[in-house]
Design a protein around this nucleic acid. Sequence first.
DNA 1: CCTGTATCATTCACCTGTGAACGAATTTCC
DNA 2: GGAAATTCGTTCACAGGTGAATGATACAGG
Lengths: 129, 129
Amino acid sequence: MLGAAHEVEARLESALDRIGLSVAKFGVLAKLVEAGEPLALGCLAERSSCVRSNMTQLVDRLEADHLVERVNDPSDRRSVRAALTPAGRERHAEAVHILEDAGREVFAILDEEERATLTRVLARLGERS
Amino acid sequence: MLGAAHEVEARLESALDRIGLSVAKFGVLAKLVEAGEPLALGCLAERSSCVRSNMTQLVDRLEADHLVERVNDPSDRRSVRAALTPAGRERHAEAVHILEDAGREVFAILDEEERATLTRVLARLGERS
DNA sequence: CCTGTATCATTCACCTGTGAACGAATTTCC
DNA sequence: GGAAATTCGTTCACAGGTGAATGATACAGG
């Protein structure tokens, strides 16, 4: 039963791979775009439901790709915030289109009612941590 | 939408962790129990839908846990087969009980019709590689 | 027979995730 | 004001996954 999720995830992963992204990297870019301002790594980790050490490495790789930059927070010298670069914003826009296409393709085989049930059921399974 | 799958998987993972197993390790043990005989690593990888290099490492860890043993195949000296140890068979049986309990708990919040739709829909999403 | 070619498991480098331990900075509370 | 607790990001060791390269074996065809 769980294999289906891996299957779908692998599809999105390989679609994003064509522009040098991954689901994890896209998640970070999307949160930065949504916020509209640089976010602290701890905040990004929390919104991504992962541990901080993971976000450290993810931002390392995004920085190596020149999609985000680390900037210091003058109001809290412990904190480091991740800021989108112009390239990062652009890459995110491309990824959105790719994911829309991939999503349509994956769910095309379901009818309207099945999609609705799936969405509702998965939300119920996921909401209680 | 995909977050729900990770949530459910994390639940099973933490349940299995109590007896020192993981979903991946359980998968290998289950395939060996089902086959009733030692299986070549390549065969195990194919049945687990993963690459061979991954199975090499997984069997490394299972062997370190003394749950399986590598045995040579006299009919093909390239091949290495994984054989269940008595401890492996026993651990598998414990895991089956744990997973049954965890599965019941997770799906208890769905009614009969929702479970049926979910099963059918996920099978359709997963079957076309 | 022997020269390719295919297949086996392994190793390596990498990506994504976790948790524990750490140093540095900030709060909190006497 | 200063000691203690908390919070920040990083580093490390690990689990689990991928793909590419490699050496050893098996299996063609000529």
